[in-house]
Nucleic acid binder design. Structure first.
Lengths: 233, 233
DNA sequence: ACCGTAGGAGACGCAAGCGTTTCTTATGTG
DNA sequence: CACATAAGAAACGCTTGCGTCTCCTACGGT
């Protein structure tokens, strides 16, 4: 993908510009965003450098500093451009299972591509409260969570999901498992998506809440005041 | 926690050594591990430096390089020391809910403490296949997953969980959601743990698989061959 | 065709980290 | 107590990145 100097290979880079030629304005800007995202994915937030970005974009540092005075500003803008909006915000296939597969597949495709490493960098390279993490949350996570809740609501109306199951907590389950697998294994496969939907999410949304079993084993207490839980240090 | 030079505050550092005194052998080694973990948590894998570690441990770089020739070796050893073994591997409280709360609370406590930032660094600072990520998986994640499966098996035997629910896929759900919340919000609270157990994991493990509802909505097809799912680019 | 703007290229001095080396001296073992 | 060992401290030359600056020229509008 990149040669030792960090420059993009000409035959693959959509923003490639032959030597001697010059990009200006928006074209250059897009190339800089692209280079920034590449460096972010390759080196992580902490180790990426302005020089690396300039070299990858085949431009000088001056063009960078003319637009953004700090690495934070640059990364914030570049990442903002890479965040895809929720597609088909109000559409539904009419089948809960189809809707879930569709949405999780979109996530998987996004995360399996070059942007996956960027998501990784954002989730982990930035401590809580960092603007980059906030951006990932408000632009990537929250809209999809909201959309999922709506899809579940519609499924409830159709009788496909148990009443009361359209909560953020339950909607979060599928994405959380998908992200978990991505972080551990580097990708989310087609089989992963199907398994998450069929083995976890659908049972959770469809099955009634605690239907009494053959022999109800002294139905576990609804609440217990255990002490040693989750203290922040 | 640290002053501008990265040195540990004397009144808090368990490995503090007054100026003029010298630590040797294992004592020094522990201090170096501690300093390494601190730097790792503070700056991330990419941006931490050997000089920073030496300064934080109040020693010279020579003592570092005498033991580890690269940053990778150092971090690998230091992180290995920080990975807690699974406690009470074979014990069970006799209640599935109690067992789940207990195990997730242990995870939450670990992750809420100073080691949380290290988990973050490992999950995200290292791409798939990196030895550090492998170590996190084999030492932190997998043992707990295995233990969870055993706990669920015991619950199945007691009639507390649905037969067939003791699978790695289902066992993964609780930890995945906990880690997800940790990554997004920086901590996992007592309420989070209780909510995960009571709203997600227990229903999933206890409710029967698709008990026919009032009007079974044309039971969703068990398998569908959707095309555009999760391609690796 | 002209010309003001801004892009590319790279040099600048500075700071930080690298990995090595040297020198002094605290340490704990025999 | 004497001594071999290894710790602390700091300097070494080197590399990389910083942010600024300058020079020259390609670009695109008039």
């Amino acid at each position: 993908m990149t040669d030792p100097t960090g420059q993009s290979s000409s035959w693959l880079d959509p923003y490639f510009c032959p030597a001697g030629r010059r990009r200006r304005g928006p074209a250059l800007e897009q190339a800089l965003y692209s280079a920034t995202l590449g460096q972010l994915a390759e080196h992580g937030l902490g180790a990426m450098t302005m020089e690396g970005v300039a070299a990858a974009a085949r431009t000088g540092k001056a063009s960078l500093y003319r637009r953004w005075s700090t690495k934070e500003d640059l990364v914030l803008d570049a990442v903002g451009c890479a965040m895809p909006a929720v597609e088909d915000y109000d559409s539904s296939t009419g089948s809960l299972r189809e809707d879930l597969l569709h949405l999780l597949s979109q996530m998987a495709t996004f995360v399996n591509g070059p942007n996956g490493q960027i998501v990784r960098s954002l989730l982990c390279g930035a401590e809580p409260g960092h603007p980059l993490l906030e951006m990932a949350r408000t632009r990537l996570i929250d809209p999809r969570l909201h959309r999922l809740v709506r899809l579940i609501e519609q499924a409830v109306d159709r009788g496909e999901a148990r009443p009361g199951s359209a909560t953020p907590t339950l909607a979060q389950v599928g994405p959380a498992i998908a992200i978990h697998r991505f972080l551990l294994f580097g990708r989310v496969t087609e089989d992963d998506v199907a398994e998450i939907v069929d083995s976890v999410v659908l049972p959770l949304l469809q099955d009634g809440p605690r239907p009494p079993h053959a022999e109800p084993p002294a139905a576990p207490p609804p609440r217990v005041d255990r002490a040693p839980v989750a203290q922040v240090h």
